[in-house]
Amino acid sequence: MCLAIPGQIKSIESPIGDVSRMAKVSFDGILKEASLELVPEAKEGDFVLVHVGIAISVVDKDEAQKTFDYLKQIGELDDLQH
């Protein structure tokens, strides 16, 4: 549960009653919602490190790709599928 996974911001919106800046984030193809409240500087196309539905930092694109490759190998991305 402590893992934070990088994903790419596809679109930004505010669905829960306008209380939060939310985004659709792609984790190597798997789309999930994440809050961008803690990364006000993040914009569409950026890669963010996401932990339990909250983006906690903006990361470099190449770094993100390397982490995907690693997570895929160890099967951790499967955890997102449910």
């Binding site: 402590c2 829960i16 939060s20 809050s35 409240e37 339990v52």
Partner: peptide, 20 residues
């Protein structure tokens, strides 16, 4: 449950619930 990594998420949930 969680360490510092998870605390902002849990804090936000309460802040959101309060705002709503």
């Amino acid at each position: 449950v969680g360490f510092e990594t998870t605390a902002p998420a849990n804090a936000l949930s309460v802040i959101h619930a309060d705002r709503l």
